[in-house]
């Protein structure tokens, strides 16, 4: 039982890992991707549409990357090149994304008589490894998107802290003037990481529609993009911190689902479990001290200043 709970926790953590690591990389350059909720939603929608129309989850996920990137590109253009406020722009894009998905769902599928379904990604058992007691069923009996994230975690850490690209990314958030003087296009760097956040956020969204539920509804993200955003803060802008934060959240969510499934609702209201991740965010935001905020987080860069 505890094994299935932990396996569930890891599964629910997967999209948050994609989202928060993307957010970490982007915020290290000074770009808060406040459009992340909209990117998740567009990814979920794009993934669903791609899978439904072609029958291939792989194409669905590519489509999710495309819709996520498209959303991120609009955000990047407005915030980076037109230098508008990141929080404000993000909110506008989140509203637009919600309207866009609902509208185009209707354009493509009309009003279906029964809910449209796709086959969610199946769990793949890794030979040998999945036979290890306890660890096997938790870590090596997951879907492909979860396996992919195993590689992304160390890769993102390595990229940020062990390569010259990582140095450029981190310097762009701390001291963009120096990066500029070194002959590197600050806004270009920022735009690239925002697009990357679009790709990864799109996959995260697709995890909910293609990877797990096998359907699409407009409220299926329900603030999880914001949780990924919060995890980035709480994880101190570090992929390692993001992993710890995500595990905590994934675990809370798994407990919530588990409690609902065993009828915990008769002891505690279900709504308490639904609210738990959000309450946890508030508590952690309050408890967490000594933040290592990128110096230029949220500040647009222009040469004249």
């Amino acid at each position: 039982m505890i094994v299935s709970l932990l396996s569930r926790a890891l599964m629910m953590s997967t999209p948050l890992l994609y989202g928060s690591i993307a957010e970490v990389i982007a915020e290290r350059t000074g770009m808060m991707v406040t459009a992340i909720e909209g990117i998740f939603l567009m990814g979920a929608w794009g993934g669903f549409v791609g899978t439904y129309l072609t029958g291939s989850a792989f194409i669905g996920i590519l489509m999710a990357m495309a819709t996520g990137t498209m959303t991120a590109a609009i955000y990047g253009i407005v915030c980076i090149f037109l230098k508008q406020h990141q929080v404000v722009t993000g909110t506008a894009i989140n509203i637009l994304a919600a309207g866009f998905c609902t509208y185009f769902q209707r354009v493509l599928f009309g009003i279906p008589t029964s809910p449209l379904k796709i086959d969610p990604l199946s769990q793949i058992a890794i030979p040998v490894l999945s036979k290890i007691p306890v660890i096997g069923p938790i870590f090596f009996y997951q879907n492909s998107l979860t396996y992919l994230v195993y590689f992304i975690i160390p890769l993102s850490y390595f990229l940020l802290f062990r390569t010259s690209i990582g140095l450029i990314i981190r310097s762009t958030g701390e001291n963009p003037e120096a990066v500029d003087v070194a002959g590197i296009n600050v806004n270009g760097v920022r735009f690239v990481v925002v697009l990357l956040a679009g790709v990864m956020g799109g996959v995260a969204g697709a995890f909910y529609s293609v990877g797990y539920l096998g359907m699409f509804t407009t409220n299926m993200i329900g603030g999880r993009g914001w949780i990924a955003f919060a995890i980035c803060f709480l994880g101190n802008w570090n992929p390692k911190g993001a992993v710890i934060g995500t595990v905590v959240f994934g675990f809370t969510e798994a407990i919530a689902i588990y409690m609902q499934s065993i009828g915990g609702g008769s002891y505690f209201p279900n709504e308490l479990f639904i609210a738990l991740p959000y309450i946890l965010t508030i508590v952690l935001t309050v408890c967490r001290k000594n933040f290592n905020v990128p110096a230029k987080l949220g500040v647009a860069y222009s040469k004249e200043n």
Partner: peptide
């Protein structure tokens, strides 16, 4: 569809 309202508001805001 009713979602045209969100779409209009979103576009106007952007």
């Amino acid at each position: 569809p009713a979602s045209i309202v969100d779409l209009m508001q979103g576009f106007v805001m952007i």
